[in-house]
Nucleic acid binder design. Structure first.
Length: 288
DNA sequence: TGGCAGGGGTTGA
DNA sequence: TCAACCCCTGCC
């Protein structure tokens, strides 16, 4: 028996859905219509639309607890923002998209996405996510394929993964899928580990280095103090916070990132990242 | 239309 | 510390 589509309306405050879904943390969302997004929560295809003070969800078998955990609308955003450093750049980044949130995503899909992300742009990571679903996932609704379990990818071949536009990352993803299948690393156990230990554990996975591990900790395990330093954040820290110093080592940048932005540094980083990326796009479009 | 540089990172020497 | 990895995109 196929359950019917249902609808859930949830009141939300301070939530910029577009910025949140489009800020390089999740790769399974696409615009389905004006203000309506199509994507996945808890392995189920859903649609979400922003009303004036609410979200309207449509889908089959949705659970409010799962939606709440994924979208994190209960987090007190202004309390989080109050922990950010009070400087000109942070103020500008927060003012640019004040309702930007950090989602709580499925660990495995986050691992796979960020292994795929090495030297890739957001749109390309989205393409890979889609290709993996179509090639290896289950069709839950016409045109909607679930993200494949690691056991499925572990049984595939590097060649098959390369057909999903993974390039040299295909090797990394298939080895990681096999490591998980063999129980070499447990994504479930990481949930309760202290952050440093969790990071070491994630780095055991092939294709996961420090930056990718930090993304996984922030976007899948809710470790809000973890700041992934990618080239955007590195560039931002160099130009915004060390404008006069010529030689600032990478180590110094990482140390600065992990202390300066405070107990919710990962959140702060996401505001800077989104502001820099889209501001540049806006500048490119409006350039005379 | 085609050639070319370069990219949100990791690995292994 | 640095080249190699693969391929898509944007630019000329």
């Amino acid at each position: 028996m196929v359950s019917e589509h249902s609808q859930i309306t949830q009141k939300v405050n301070d939530y910029d859905l577009a910025a949140t879904l489009n800020s390089g943390q999740a790769f399974c969302w696409e615009l389905a219509g004006p203000g309506e997004w199509r994507g996945w929560v808890d392995g189920k295809p859903i649609r979400v639309q922003r009303g004036s003070d609410c979200f309207r969800f449509r889908g089959r078998g949705m659970e409010i607890a799962k939606l709440s955990r994924y979208f994190q609308w209960s987090e007190d955003l202004s309390a989080i923002q109050r922990t950010f450093p009070d400087d000109e750049w942070m103020r500008e980044a927060v003012a640019y998209s004040p309702g930007l949130r950090i989602l709580r995503q499925d660990p495995w899909e986050t691992v796979a996405n960020f292994i795929s992300s090495a030297m890739k742009q957001v749109s390309q990571i989205q393409q890979i996510n889609r290709a993996l679903r179509q090639r290896f996932g289950r069709e839950m609704e016409p045109g909607c394929w679930s993200f494949p379990h690691w056991r499925v990818l572990a049984q595939s071949t590097e060649e098959m993964l390369r057909e999903c536009k993974l390039g040299f990352r295909a090797k990394h993803l298939i080895v990681t899928a096999r490591q998980l299948t063999e129980g070499e690393v447990s994504l479930e156990k990481i949930e309760t580990m202290p952050t440093d230990q969790a990071r070491e554990e994630l780095i055991k996975l092939r294709g996961v280095g420090r930056k990718v591990a930090n993304c996984i900790l922030l976007f899948a395990y809710g470790r809000m103090d973890v700041v992934p330093v990618d080239v955007w954040i590195e560039r931002a820290i160099r130009t915004l916070y060390f404008p006069k110093k010529r030689k600032v080592t990478d180590k110094r940048i990482r140390e600065f990132a992990s202390t300066y932005f405070g107990p919710n540094g990962g959140y702060a980083q996401q505001y800077l990242f989104h502001w820099l990326r889209t501001r540049e796009k806006v500048a490119a479009v409006t350039r005379e």
